[in-house]
Structures are given as C-alpha cells and as structure tokens.
Design a protein around this nucleic acid. Structure first.
Length: 434
RNA sequence: GGAGGAUUCGCCUAGUGGCUUAUGGCGCACGCUUGGAAAGCGUGUUGGGGGAAACCCCUCGCGGGUUCGAAUCCCGCAUCCUCCGCCA
C-alpha cells in the first residue's frame, strides 16, 4: 500500500497514477473521506477511553475506603460506578465505530495500486517502449531450412513430453525428461552461480504460503484469479518465489546500514492461467507449473531506481550467456502489476513465432509491498519502510523454448550455449534420440 | 491425529484483577570519569496512531468474552517445544 500521508498531501498525484494505470481515480476520494471519518472516530474513542481510565484510577483506592464502612466513600463510590458503567457502554460503541471506520480505510488502502514512476510510458499492453535490442535473429531461409518449434525439437530430443503430461495432469503440463531435465539442472546451476557471484544469497523457499504473505505481496488483488488456493488448509501455492522472499523479512526492522539484502530464490511456481484459453496452447510457453530462479532485493528507498537497473543488468547478463537475441522493453503504465511502480521486461526472440516473447521481468515495488508486509529499516533512529524489487533470472520453460528454437540445426540437433556446457559435462549439442 | 507445556521491549526475565504510566538484566546509544581504554556511574532505548503543542490513545502471540477496570480470569485460534501415534 502507499502512504496515507501522501494521499492526504498530494491526492492529485495518486489520482493521476490510478488514471494512467487504467484504474479508478475516485478510490482516492473515497479513501480521503473514509480517513476523515476514521480520524474523527479515533479521536472520539480516545477521549472516552481516557475518561474511563481516569475514572478507573479513582475507583480502586475508593473501594478500600468503602470497605472500612466509610459512608461518604460508599456514596461516592456508587456515583462513580454508575458513571463508569455508562462510560463503559459508550466506550464499546465508540470502539465499534472506530473499528468499522478503520476497516473501511484499510480496505481502500489495500485497493489502491502503487504510485507509478512518472517516466513509465503511458498506455496499455501495446504501448511499451523498446529500450534496446540485443543480437540478431537468425535467417533460417538463408540457412536453407525451416525452423522447428520448441515442442517438435523437445520431442525429437526426448526432452519434453506433453502428451503423457496431459494424461497425468491435463493441459498446460509437461514432463522434462532426459536431456530436458539435464538442461533444467544446467540452467539452474548457471543462474545460481551468476547470482552467487554477484553476492546474492541463494534461497530455497516454501512454495505454500499463508494468506498474509500472499496478500502482502499484492497477489490477491487483480491477480487473484491466477493463484492456486489450497482451501482445506487456507494456504496458497506461490506463482513466484517473490512471495516467499518478500515475506521472509515481514514484521522485521532491518538495519539500514546492512541494506541492500539480496536473495536469489529457486522454486517451483504455480499459475492457474485463468482467462488464457486459446493462448499459447502448444508447447511450454504458458504452463501451470514451472521452476524459476528469482532475484529479490530489500533496499533503501533512495537506492531503488539504481537497484532496479542493477537487477535488469543481471537479467541481461544471463540472457547474454545463453546467446539468444532479445530486447528490453519499458512496460506501459496500464500493464504494470498493482505492486510495481516501474517494470522492465526482457523478451527473447522466438523464431517460429517471428516475434519476441517475455522471458524475464523486473519490477520496482518501492515501499508498496514493504508497507503491507511491515518490512522496515532503522536509519539514524528513524524507522521507515524499505523498498523491494524483484527480477527474474531464469524462468525455465521459456528459456528452454528460446534455447531450443534459436540454437537448432537443420538435423534437429541443438547446440548448447558455451556458458551451459560446464554444467552438462562439456557436451556441445543435444542430438535427436532414435 | 492425541496429551502436556510455552508465547511480555533486539535477547533473557518479573509480573494471579486497580499506585502497571509493565520490572530487572544483557545488548545498544549518549554523557560523566580517565593520559587512553576497561570497569564504574548517570541518562536514554517496543512499535503504531492522533495532535500546532502539552499531551492522549493503542500495542504483553491473535480473536472473542467476563468486569466499572484485564498482561493477569474464561473461551477459541495460531506458532513453537516435549511425548505418543502415523509417515517420506
């Protein structure tokens, strides 16, 4: 959530942010009104409660005197008790009113998305700005053969089996087998060693989390329909290890001098992919379950923009090392998640689709998640929220798509990028199985 | 799944209904002392909200209840520990 003081002091800025996102700007006005009511109710409760406590302090000693059969004390006590009784009722009513007003304010606070960075391009999904293109797509026509798509290649190589996965789990599932499984392990090893080389702490987090963790990271808002819920136990399967990494330091006050704290989480990710019927039905581009190495940083809010660039650079380093053409885009305001103030995606070239497809994504969530999860820092005695940022290092299926399609040869074999070879026993290529 | 125990400030801890405005220690910060340090002494040290300020309110795992008044009594839940059962 954003800071209530900002909403009070500069409501126009928040309205503009909502507008650019294509979300409701009148939420701001509803919130301001709820806040007004809430503060009034809070002050009323405080006053009554103060009076009640003061009265309570008089009753105690008086009861001692009254026991000594002091008639005046008994009379006074009766008077005080009568007033205290009335006050008690009034306090309960005031407390209910305050709680109601507070819950409404809180509800609206949680409904507001993060304030976007003003430099982000304005518009919808198609209004992104291309920041950079790296590498050149191969000219398969010039090479004299028609490229196979990743599923055909994966099947030839004995690396991917979606037919049997459909039998076992249904649509949008897959087996990585043989070379496919080995490729995943190699990718993870490469990603983690790069992360460790940059000083990130590797983490294997839980993938089943409780409601506050999910809510705090911002995935129960507009993204809720894509989250798997384990109803019997009131838990959620994470769609990204970002959830477990962000919540790792929840309810903590970190030492500002020790920031940034950087982690790289490896976990399985689960996504319902609701509302994507008919999209990417072939292959493993859009699946319900996949493994991913994710970077996560808790940093000083003043450093967040620079940290965002750092995460982007590390994403690019990984893509460079698997030698596929890609571009970097600045995601438009209407396509940001509710937590993100700014988002950059890296999209790898997919030859058989003739276009770039998202493979990694990095978001600056500023203090939005930290407020919800209560992750703060102490700096010169002052306590304030940290900034959180996340970025994909390697989302397995899409990286596999990019590698298979971009490094394929006419005979159906696939050259292994140099950086991966050490993690595959020095092999240079995957060959079709007989 | 069953039975017991625990949960108070960064850590340890006192606290069985009203002088609790929560005790003491460790740690930490600042100061005094010192040639310098240690020790010693003094002061400060949970978060959050409201208010111009004085100050007020909330916060003793969480949620209810009893009461004029709850860290304290009652009920429910969560987490952790021990034992039993089951199990990778």
């Amino acid at each position: 959530m954003i800071e209530l003081k900002v909403v009070r002091a500069d409501p126009d800025r928040v309205r503009e942010s909502q507008r650019r996102r294509g979300e409701d700007p009148t939420l701001v006005d509803a919130l301001l009104q709820a806040d007004e009511v809430n503060r009034g109710a809070g002050a009323a409760f405080d006053r009554l409660r103060n009076e009640q406590k003061e009265l309570g302090r008089q009753i105690g000693p008086l009861q001692g005197k009254a026991k000594g059969a002091d008639a005046a004390a008994v009379a006074e006590l009766e008077g005080l008790m009568a007033r205290a009784k009335d006050l008690s009722d009034a306090v309960k009513v005031a407390e209910d009113e305050r709680d109601t007003a507070d819950a409404e304010t809180q509800r609206l606070m949680l409904a507001l998305s993060n304030i976007i960075e003003l430099d982000a391009p304005v518009g919808g999904e198609e209004d992104f700005v291309v920041l950079q293109e790296v590498g050149t797509p191969r000219d398969f026509a010039a090479e004299g053969f028609e490229p196979r798509d990743h599923l055909e290649l994966g099947t030839l190589l004995g690396a991917i089996d979606v037919e049997r996965a459909a039998k076992v789990s249904g649509a949008r599932f897959y087996y990585l087998i043989g070379n496919g499984a080995l490729l995943e392990f190699a990718l993870i090893n490469l990603a983690i060693s790069q992360a460790v080389a940059h000083g990130l702490t590797p983490v294997i987090p839980p993938v089943l989390v409780n409601p506050p963790a999910m809510e705090g990271t911002g995935f129960l808002g507009q993204a809720a329909e894509n989250v798997y819920r384990v109803e019997l136990d009131d838990m959620y399967l994470v769609g990204t290890s970002e959830v477990a990494l962000a919540a790792y330091h929840s309810d903590e006050i970190l030492d500002a001098a020790k920031l940034p704290l950087r982690y790289s989480g490896f976990s399985t990710c689960f996504r319902r992919e609701a509302g994507t019927y008919g999209k990417d039905t072939r292959g493993i581009i859009r699946v319900h379950q996949f493994d991913k190495v994710e970077m996560f940083s808790f940093c000083h809010p003043d450093d967040a923009v620079a940290e965002h660039q750092r995460l982007l650079a590390w994403e690019r380093e990984f893509l460079d090392s698997i030698e596929v053409p890609y571009r970097v885009i600045d995601v438009a305001s209407g396509d940001l998640g509710s937590s993100a103030a700014r988002k950059f995606d890296c999209e790898a070239w997919v030859p058989t689709q003739g276009k770039y497809r998202e493979v990694t994504s990095t978001s600056n969530c500023t203090e939005f998640q930290a407020r919800r999860l209560s992750i703060r820092m102490r700096e010169d005695g002052v306590v304030r929220p940290v900034a959180t940022l996340n970025g994909t290092l390697c989302a397995i299926p899409r990286i596999i798509v990019a590698i298979l399609e971009n490094h394929q040869q006419a005979d159906g074999s696939v050259n292994i990028p140099f950086a991966l070879r050490p993690y595959l026993g020095g092999r240079e290529k995957f060959e079709p199985i007989s």
